[in-house]
Computed example of a mutant assay.
Amino acid sequence: MPHDHAGKEVTYSISELAQEFDITARTIRYYEDEGLISPTREGQNRIYSHKDKIRLKLTLRGKRLGFSLAEIRELFDMYDTDRSSRTQLLSMVQLIEAKREALRQQQEDIQMVLAELEAAERRCSGALDLLAARDGQPRSQTS
Rank of each mutant, 00 (worst) to 15 (best):
L90T: 14
H3I: 09
A25H: 00
L56C: 01
T40D: 05
E74L: 11
E16T: 08
V93R: 09
L90R: 11
F67M: 08
E20F: 02
Q107W: 11
E16V: 08
F21M: 02
V113L: 15
G43A: 08
M78H: 06
G66N: 03
S140K: 09
L36Y: 01
S91C: 15
K51W: 01
A102H: 04
E16Y: 05
I54Y: 08
I110Y: 11
L114Q: 10
E121I: 12
Q106S: 11
E42C: 06
R41M: 06
L69A: 03
D22W: 03
A115M: 14
I110S: 08
D77R: 01
G43C: 14
Y30P: 00
D82V: 09
G62S: 01
D109F: 06
Q141T: 13
R83E: 02
K8N: 15
K51T: 01
S49V: 00
V10G: 05
F67P: 01
A25Q: 00
R123E: 13
R83D: 07
R100Q: 12
E71K: 09
K51A: 05
L103Y: 07
A132E: 09
A70D: 10
M78P: 06
S91F: 11
R134E: 07
G126C: 13
G7V: 01
I23V: 03
Q107E: 14
S91M: 14
D129H: 04
T59I: 05
E16D: 06
E34T: 03
D77W: 07
T11S: 01
K57N: 02
T27V: 05
D22R: 05
K63I: 02
E20A: 04
E121V: 14
K8I: 12
L130Y: 13
R104E: 10
R55D: 00
I14K: 02
K57M: 07
I54H: 04
R73Q: 05
G136Q: 05
L103G: 10
R122S: 15
D80H: 04
G126W: 10
L114F: 10
T59E: 00
R46W: 04
Q44C: 07
L130P: 04
S85L: 10
L95C: 15
F67L: 08
Q88I: 09
Q88A: 15
I110A: 08
I28P: 01
I47T: 01
Q19E: 09
R134D: 12
H50S: 09
L69S: 02
E108I: 11
P39F: 01
S68T: 09
L17C: 00
R46S: 03
I96P: 08
E118Q: 12
H50Q: 08
R139I: 14
C124K: 13
Y79S: 03
P2Q: 13
E20P: 02
E71L: 04
K63G: 00
S84Q: 12
A119D: 13
S68E: 08
F76M: 04
C124N: 13
L60Y: 02
S91I: 10
S140G: 06
Q141S: 14
L65S: 03
R73E: 03
R139K: 13
R83G: 09
A133F: 06
Y12E: 05
T87C: 05
E16N: 08
D82K: 11
T87F: 12
T142I: 14
Y30F: 09
Y48G: 00
D33I: 02
I54E: 08
R73P: 03
I47S: 02
Q94I: 04
T40G: 03
T87H: 05
A119T: 14
A6P: 10
I54W: 09
